[in-house]
Amino acid sequence: MTCYEFQQELPELVDGGRTAEQESHLNSCRSCSELLADLTVISELASSLQASEDPNPRVWNSIEAALRKEGLIRQPQREPGLALVSRSRPRPLAFWWAPVAATLLIVAGLLFYGQLPFSRGSRSTPAQASLSGPKLASFADKDDQQMLEVVQAHAPGMRAAYANNLRAVNAYIQDAEESVQQDPNDEDARETLVTAYEQKAVVYEMAMDRSLP
């Protein structure tokens, strides 16, 4: 089974079981196994967000307050559902929050702009909007700073490069958001926004994964 054939069947794989052939491919292909793991995490996170898509705004406010108070990224243990696929090289413990933060950021952004199929096509509810815009940016700023601190600790020489790239992708997201706001029905603009978030995810992925010694 090739990667292409495997990835054609990804939607079923995320939600259901696997055939022996798929299992065999997963065992032999790191790229596909990582992709499946990431999609599973995103699917689980999105499902949990979907469940609270139309709550009372107070629910969102209290969640937001709790996240702020406790620190979204300082939970003592990783939730089982948030565990990303293990890599061949162990990550520094301090990096565990990076994929979580990046995933939440992306999922929140995508849900806000109605990109994911399970977002029921709604562009935003007031509740979702409370976690978007400046507040979402505020979370992102904090995450960015903490990510840069980790880079500084592990590879000081690369901090400037990461800071520059973060600035660039944040500007990308901002411009893409403006385009969507100008014309929410512009499919290209929405796809561009997704791409911009993906670029940011790459920066986080690089920082947390193998690209720091």
């Binding site: 292909c29 790229s31 193998r210 690209s211």
Partner: peptide, 9 residues
Amino acid sequence: GDVTMEGAN
């Protein structure tokens, strides 16, 4: 065969 590359710089 498939080629995957990843690297910061």
